[in-house]
Amino acid sequence: MKVAVDEEKCCGAGQCVLLAPEVFDQRDEDGVVILLDEQPSENLHGSVREAADVCPAAAIEVSEDA
């Protein structure tokens, strides 16, 4: 799995951090997403997909084949 984030789209809601704190964090100053792990281990795939689904700005892209 490969994860990408769009910082410009990110609205700073932080839903991704609530779901997958191992993979996502937020910048202190403006709350924009920080991608901690571009290729998270398999046990995190479920929560990362969930984070991509619930992101209210559709700012997380997950590609499965990478």
């Binding site: 700073g12 809601a13 932080g14 951090v17 609530l18 937020q26 910048r27 202190d28 403006d30 709350g31």
Partner: peptide
């Protein structure tokens, strides 16, 4: 207010 990360931790 201009504290998006911190407000999440207070949720």
């Amino acid at each position: 207010w201009n504290r998006p990360k911190q407000v999440r931790t207070r949720r």
